[in-house]
Amino acid sequence: MSIEVSSLSFDYGRNRVLKQVSFTAQDHELLSVLGPNGVGKTTLFRCILGLLRGYRGQILVDGIDISGLGAAGMAKLIAYVPQFHYPSFNYSVFDMVLMGTSVQVSAFSSPGRKQKKLVEEALERLGIAHLKDRGFTRISSGEQQLVLLARALVQESKILVMDEPTSNLDYGNQVRVLTEVKSLVGEGYTIIQSTHNPDLAFMFSDKVLALKDGAVLGFGPPDQVFTEELIYDLYGMKVKLESLYHDQVRVCVPKNIADKAVSPGFVSNL
């Protein structure tokens, strides 16, 4: 499924948070949204998810304008993987994931055998089936992120919106979660994620959207968008962009460190 955002603007009171944001994402694509904190990424996601109304511009999913859709209609198109936070009440991993199927059952009933089977499959698929009876708050943060991902999968919508899925994970778990995300993209999902890590965004993304002060600074394939100027504009940090493995990987190194690194014994000079 495709998502097409055109000239999206949003104001909180007098404060314009999003300015004429346009981009598209197709199936088999992972789009990473980059930008400093407070730049409007969360607002953008809340608009896409139908949680914020009153925006200007248009959001089309497979050509359908989402502004007319209710919660259930939206949930069938787009699933949300929230940033990790402690839930008010602890649930077992199985129950937690089962909640993702709620849109498939009426308000006055609860998920049945078909939904439970979906949960088993999603847990299996992400390699966390052994955790199903554990309490959600008692597993590692990498596992928690996979549980939230599983919950989005059982919702059976083909677009996933992920709010900083790797932000509180250690390096190993970041790569592990992104590898799962990448393999979902391979299966045809359209995935939009926000991230703070330019290196990993370059490595895994098919497209990058760079946002600064609510406006688009760059949009396109990572090898075209990722430049030293862009990183400077985004984060106010001069970097040297090093290309590795025939430009399969690009690594940002802060300029002051990169310059000194050419001379021996640079660490002691820092």
Binding site: L49, G50, L51, G70, A75, Y80, P82, S102
Partner: peptide, 10 residues
């Protein structure tokens, strides 16, 4: 937000 995104009319 999460419940709405899961299709619930909160």
């Amino acid at each position: 937000d999460e419940s709405r995104a899961m299709g619930i009319n909160v």
